[in-house]
Design a binder for these strands. Structure first.
Ligand SMILES: [Zn+2]
Length: 502
DNA sequence: CGCCTTTGACCGGCGC
DNA sequence: GCGCCGGTCAAAGGCG
């Protein structure tokens, strides 16, 4: 069901994209949804045109031509009344369709553009690394010496043949840690392969550290993203009553992608409330009002196998985000941790709110979609504006004791207003408050801030994925957010913002 | 029968 | 050194 829904959403996206590209040479205003609407109507009336080859503008003109003479003809009162009655409704619907189509188009343009940018970024990184494979002088991170990651598609494939055999055959305890294991294998490997694996391993190590977590408000226990996952573990988080589940991609034999899924649901809270005092209940209620049915899905790694189109959205975005974050945040982590905090804010035409955050130990891109009503990306057009006040992305859970020691990195949170209006034109709204940032920031901030579409693209894509299943959108009135506004240059407040690893 | 979930155990890292 | 904690493994069982 979830997969079906996701596939449907993505197919819809692709479909709209195709139509958009088809009618792009024509007028830009027409919307794909509008096409369908009018095509239906017109086939009822005239049915002359072949549906595929028809352009939108032509259809629209046809319709208007059809409607207007009929209205002015006055030959038949019944027909006239009917038409005059129908006309406002149709026009209103047309307007809604237009709006939605524009939104969709904007989203898709953002997705594609950001994807292109990311790909270029990846290529640049690959080239840089190929040229300087041994130079790690760019502010080596404290924990692991990791180079800028290159294209991560084949990183695991090198390791896979050797590793899969040993992993399956040998008892696990002998080779406990992955790094150790790799080291041993490296020593046993021939020289040329050793060098290659060394590089691959470094990339892999760095890639494994990059994570992309998605917070979403969803009723479904898991968010189907098109991949097949097998659960391989479950742990009770320390401060969180809800356990954290560990999944592994099973579409390929040795796909390294892993996914953590922690849901903060109020189930256990309900059990607890009976015994607890009212104040505690208040706290619990508060917390659960914030966190109830919020899923935090953390992806890690890159698939080494072809993916179904449904999974491509999530996979590509996550891998791109990971690589981008890694490429940038490694140098920036040093600069930022010492001095100050970086923040960038952009008002973007989408309904989701995304937070890109890079923490020092685990560079993480966090997408917070808990504020995005599903109507933004779903097929149902909502003319209303959700005037959500600019809330901060994460509902800070004050009860949890985050032990995330330091949060050094950049913090790009994009607030988005409902794009139902005309704000979905791609060029203008992006990059509002971003320009000045790139100077003070190192390459990471530059990379991300230069392409703020990325956030929106992710948000849009994922909202489109998740969109259908969420029904409740409470006002989430907790104004307790101190993350962006007050989190400046303070590591303590940053804990709130980065609570995805609780 | 194969795949998946469950679940207890284990192991390395880290703080004390 | 010890214990906690997060992450992983793998045996056992369920499900189609
Ligand atoms: Zn995979």
């Amino acid at each position: 069901m979830d997969t079906a829904h996701l596939g449907g959403a993505l197919l819809a996206l692709v479909h709209s994209h195709r139509r958009m590209s088809a009618d792009d040479p024509g007028s830009r205003r027409r919307s794909s949804v509008e096409v369908d609407f009018f095509s239906d109507d017109k086939t009822c009336r005239e049915r002359e045109p072949p549906p595929g080859s028809l352009r939108l503008d032509i259809k629209k003109e046809d319709l208007t031509i059809n409607l207007l003479p009929a209205a002015t003809r006055r030959s038949d009162d019944d027909d006239n009344n009917k038409i005059s009655n129908e006309l406002p409704g149709l026009q209103a619907e047309l307007g809604r369709m237009n709006e939605e189509n524009q939104r969709l188009r904007g989203m898709l343009a953002q997705v594609s553009s950001s994807y292109q940018a990311l790909q270029m970024h990846l290529v640049a990184l690959m080239q840089a690394q190929a040229q300087q494979p041994h130079r790690q002088a760019i502010a080596p991170p404290p924990r692991h010496s990791s180079i800028l990651p290159s294209s991560n598609n084949d990183q695991e494939q090198q390791r896979q043949p050797s590793n899969s055999s040993t992993e399956v055959g040998s008892p696990r305890r002998s080779s406990s840690t992955g790094n150790k294991d790799d080291d041993l294998q490296q020593q046993a490997a021939p020289g040329w392969l050793q060098a290659a694996e060394g590089r691959q391993q470094q990339q892999e190590a760095s890639m494994r550290k990059a994570r992309v977590s998605v917070r979403a408000r969803s009723e479904a226990p898991i968010i189907a993203d098109g991949c097949q996952w097998r659960k391989y573990g479950q742990k009770m988080a320390k401060g969180n009553p809800c356990p954290r589940a560990y999944y592994r991609c099973t579409m390929a034999n040795a796909c390294p992608v892993r996914k953590q899924l922690v849901s903060t649901s109020g189930k256990l809270f309900d059990q607890l409330t009976d015994d607890w005092s009212t104040e505690d209940c208040m706290y619990q209620v508060q917390r659960c009002a914030d966190d109830r049915s919020i899923l935090i899905t953390t992806y890690e790694g890159t698939h080494n196998h072809p993916l179904p189109p449904a999974a491509m959205a999530m996979a590509s975005t996550t891998s791109a985000a990971a690589s981008m974050l890694l490429s940038g945040s490694m140098p920036s982590a040093d600069a930022n941790s010492s001095s100050s905090f970086l923040q960038a804010r952009a008002v973007l035409p989408s309904n989701g709110m995304a937070t890109i955050s890079a923490s020092a130990p685990f560079p993480t891109v966090t997408l917070d979609l808990t504020h995005g009503p599903p109507a933004a990306a779903a097929a149902t057009a909502r003319p209303q504006f959700h005037h959500v006040p600019p809330l901060q992305p994460l509902p800070p859970p004050p009860l949890y004791n985050h032990n995330q020691s330091k949060f050094s990195g950049l913090h790009l949170s994009s607030f988005s207003t409902d794009g139902g209006g005309a704000s979905s034109e791609p060029p203008p709204p992006i990059g509002v408050g971003i320009g000045g940032l790139a100077d003070t920031v190192s390459a990471a901030a530059a990379a991300i801030t230069a392409d703020p579409n990325f956030t929106v693209a992710l948000a849009a894509a994922i909202t489109s994925i998740i969109g259908g299943q969420q029904q409740q959108q409470h006002g989430d009135g907790q104004a307790n957010h101190n993350n962006v506004t007050s989190s400046s240059n303070n590591t303590a407040t940053s804990n709130n913002t980065n609570s995805e690893t609780q």
